[in-house]
Simulated scan of single mutants.
Amino acid sequence: MKPPFKLDAHPRRPRPLLSEPPADYFDKLPMHIMTRLPRAEAPGTAAGGRWLAWLSPALRTGLASVAVLGGFAASFYLSGPPAAGSASAATASLDAVPRTELVGYLLTSGARVETTDLAVLTAANPGLANGFLQATEDELTEALDAQPSEDLTYLL
């Protein structure tokens, strides 16, 4: 078995004394290193970008912002209006279905259409029910009066 290692039992080697750096060594060190680096041409001094160096930083930032926003606006302008063909095709296919069949579908329990949905629809289009609802005004009033309602919004 090895004896345990104790640092205090080992003598230290004497350290050599360090000499002091020359005066202003650390002040001159960055410039000394920079002079030894190879010089590369700055990217702003290329033939096409020299005029940008003459502009103030605020003007360069504004110019960049205008270029980005102009590109964004141009992309919206060039994309054109949305395709109206898909909306007209859906409307045309819905117009081909008879209204009695549509009303029958909406009144089935599986459609999950509530009376508030129909009330909003008829409020937007008051003459919508005239084409498929054949009832006199007295019959409609009697049917509406028979309906229990807590919300007076649709009764006025």
Rank of each mutant, 00 (worst) to 15 (best):
V103L: 05
L102G: 09
S19L: 01
G127D: 03
L102C: 10
P14L: 05
L152N: 12
M1Y: 07
A111Q: 14
N125S: 14
S88R: 11
L55D: 13
W54Y: 09
G71K: 10
A143E: 01
S65Y: 00
A96S: 15
P148H: 13
T136K: 04
R12W: 02
A111S: 15
P3Q: 11
R39S: 10
L133Q: 03
L78I: 08
L52N: 08
Q134C: 06
A84M: 01
V103D: 02
A87I: 01
P22C: 02
E142I: 13
S93R: 14
R12N: 06
R39G: 02
L156A: 14
Y77C: 04
F132S: 04
R50V: 03
K2T: 15
E142H: 06
L118A: 01
S56Y: 01
L29Q: 05
Y105D: 08
P21C: 00
V68M: 11
P148V: 05
A64N: 12
V120T: 15
F5S: 13
L155D: 15
L156I: 10
R112W: 05
A47D: 15
A73R: 07
T115G: 09
E142V: 09
S75W: 14
K28W: 05
G110I: 04
P3H: 07
S149T: 14
A73M: 13
D24Y: 07
F72S: 15
L133S: 03
D27F: 03
T116A: 10
G62N: 15
L144K: 05
D27Q: 04
L128I: 00
A58N: 14
L118F: 00
A73I: 08
S86E: 09
A90N: 06
L106G: 08
E41S: 04
G110S: 14
D117K: 08
F26W: 08
A73K: 08
T141L: 00
L156C: 10
A64W: 11
S149H: 13
V103Q: 00
S109M: 13
F26D: 09
D24F: 09
M31Y: 15
L140D: 00
A46N: 04
A87V: 07
G127Q: 05
P98W: 00
P14A: 10
P43A: 01
A92F: 13
T91S: 15
